[in-house]
């Protein structure tokens, strides 16, 4: 029976915490941190086109910057910690939001809703999971070097060239798919974050969507350029 005129007693009336808007803000801030990292990371990757020397020096610099005032690898660990916290916060919020979304619509529509907003928006959850799996593989591949065929610490250039060798096309393919997933994720995520944190007027909406698209495309192309350069022999 539906009780009218007063708050329904049949449903549990607890107020979920954190609030839905707080979760959104966490998503946006943590996503923005990850995005900043991605941009820096992508620009760093492009050094490969300047030669083995350039990228290996850059990798070494990342580990020595600040010395001797600071201990070795300070920046690197700082970034790692912040990024880990951000990604964990991001994922935890995403999981809470997803669970609330399922609870908010316990009975699904029989006739599937056609996608009206955007595909990027609809693929955030699956895309996120793919990216997470990719990150784990990516760390084992190029950070710990556990899965890397070359696996020489400090020789980033050689590790990359070995990784994306034409015979290992499936690795390149997986990287490509993951990077495209990141592109989609960022395309909606960046806009979404601006919508959450920005002062968004109706007029600015389309501009912001454009900005998000451009950032996402640049990021995707930038990241993809490395494996494809190796695959096609441009970088060897």
């Amino acid at each position: 029976m539906v009780t009218l005129g007063q708050r329904p007693a049949t449903r549990a009336r607890h107020t979920p915490r954190p609030s839905s808007v707080q979760l959104k803000i966490v998503m946006a801030v943590s996503g923005a941190l990850a995005l900043l990292y991605l941009v820096a990371h992508m620009i760093g990757n492009l050094k490969i086109f300047l030669g083995a020397e350039a990228i290996n020096t850059y990798a070494a610099w990342l580990r020595t910057v600040g010395e001797p005032a600071l201990p070795a690898e300070t920046l690197l660990w700082l970034v790692r910690v912040v990024l880990t916290v951000a990604i964990v916060a991001h994922i935890v919020s995403a999981v809470i939001l997803t669970r609330r979304a399922h609870r908010a619509r316990p009975v699904k529509y029989a006739h599937r809703q056609p996608v009206q907003g955007s595909y990027a928006a609809r693929t955030m959850r699956w895309g996120g999971v793919i990216i997470l799996l990719f990150i784990i593989y990516h760390l084992l591949d190029l950070t710990t070097l556990t899965l890397n065929p070359n696996g020489v610490p400090g020789d980033v250039h050689a590790n990359l060239v070995a990784d994306f060798a034409p015979s290992r096309w499936y690795v390149t393919l997986f990287y490509a798919l993951a990077v495209i997933a990141v592109g989609f994720h960022v395309r909606h995520g960046l806009w979404s974050g601006l919508q959450t944190l920005g002062h968004n007027s109706a007029a600015a909406q389309n501009t912001l969507k454009g900005v998000a698209l451009v950032v996402a495309v640049l990021l995707t192309v930038g990241f993809l350029s490395v494996p494809f350069a190796v695959l096609t022999g441009l970088v060897r």
Partner: peptide, 22 residues
């Protein structure tokens, strides 16, 4: 209002934009 919104069992927004289309 946000508190009541959440308490009533509505989900959290992830800016999918479907609402404005509908």
């Amino acid at each position: 209002m946000v508190e009541t919104h959440d308490t009533e069992g509505f989900g959290g927004c992830t800016n999918t934009g479907e609402c404005a289309v509908a």
